[in-house]
């Protein structure tokens, strides 16, 4: 936008262009709107309209005696039901997503650091390895994890052999769900952290050493703070989809103690007349995530660097 403003200043300055035609700026701003048009149309039709529709559904009431039929209403009881009946599901969703985000950070940071500073000519290969899972479907990879974590699979077998698995199972436990979530969203954590580390001027990190900070202190006071924009982006890109995810719970999780994503899925697809509650749950989840993200960014965000 600033370049547009500059152009208009120059064009509008009679000393610079005594005969400059004013339409020049109009033409340019039309170009900007034309470029925006496809995106705006797409989002308008496929995001804003459905969202409004969903909001309307979340306030509808059932026709008594006609399962699956609703009428327009302002029935806020759907939200009350979403909050009271399904509070444990929300709590589980945020707990598992939070754990997965933390674990993904613990795995991703050293990996991204190695890629940015130590990998040398292996860097591109490592990058391919990080992105490679995207070449297969999300569902398929999660199915593969159900094999890996199955009772007769390698992980459970080794842990059982070592008597390190108290319950005897990994599959169909919350541990499997968190493991699946961590795995599935790991690239979304690695890539932004890598990008922010790779962008950091190596001389700034050297300056830390030059100013009497040893390796660890330089990391703590220079490298880590400089990569915070990447960490922030990575945690958001992991936490937000993980909190709404239902596939990992469906394929790897226990029968009872589902996440809120599963409830929404069931209410929409399996429970007759579940649409209003499902819509209310969706909006509650969205609001809760937005509130958390807002607080998180306010606390850790550095406006200059994001």
């Amino acid at each position: 936008m600033s370049s547009l403003a500059q152009v208009s200043q120059v064009a509008g300055d009679p000393a610079v262009h005594p005969t400059a035609p004013a339409p020049e700026t109009e033409k340019r701003s039309w170009t900007a709107y034309l470029l925006l048009l496809p995106g705006v149309l797409w989002l308008g039709v496929f995001f804003i309209l459905p969202l409004v529709q969903l909001a309307a559904v979340s306030l509808q009431s059932r026709f008594p005696g006609f399962p699956g039929y609703y009428y327009r209403d302002l029935n806020f009881e759907n939200y009350l039901s979403a909050l009271t009946d399904y509070a444990p599901h929300f709590a589980r969703s945020f707990l598992y997503a939070g754990l997965a985000t933390f674990l993904a950070f613990v795995v991703a940071y050293p990996l991204a650091y190695a890629m940015a500073f130590k990998a040398g000519r292996w860097r591109n290969l490592m990058m391919i390895c990080v992105v490679a899972p995207f070449f297969t479907s999300f569902i398929l990879r999660t199915f593969a994890w159900s094999q890996i974590l199955a009772d007769e699979g390698p992980v459970a077998a080794v842990l059982n052999f070592l008597h390190l698995l108290p319950g005897g199972h990994i599959i169909n436990t919350p541990v499997a769900v968190v493991a699946g979530l961590t795995y599935n969203f790991l690239p979304f954590m690695v890539l932004p952290i890598y990008a922010s580390l790779e962008r950091a001027d190596p001389r700034v990190i050297e300056a830390g050493g030059d100013l009497y900070a040893n390796g660890f202190t330089t990391f703590r006071t220079v490298t880590l703070p400089m990569s915070m924009p990447g960490v922030l982006a990575g945690t958001l890109l992991t936490f937000i989809p993980a909190a709404g995810d239902f596939v990992n719970m469906e394929l790897l999780g226990p029968q009872r103690g589902k996440m809120v994503g599963n409830v929404i899925n069931d209410q929409f697809l399996a429970v007759p007349g579940g649409y209003p509650v499902a819509a209310a749950l969706s909006f509650t989840l969205m609001a809760a995530i937005l509130a958390m993200v807002f607080l998180y960014v306010r606390r850790f965000g550095t406006d200059e660097l994001v």
């Binding site: 001027d201 001389r203 700034v204 050297e206 300056a207 830390g208 030059d210 100013l211 220079v222 703070p225 400089m226 915070m228 550095t302 200059e304 660097l305």
Partner: peptide
């Protein structure tokens, strides 16, 4: 006991 003024300054951007 040596300090450097780096080319392109290398100031800590977050401080």
């Amino acid at each position: 006991p040596v300090n450097t003024v780096f080319q392109s300054y290398a100031l800590f951007p977050h401080l």
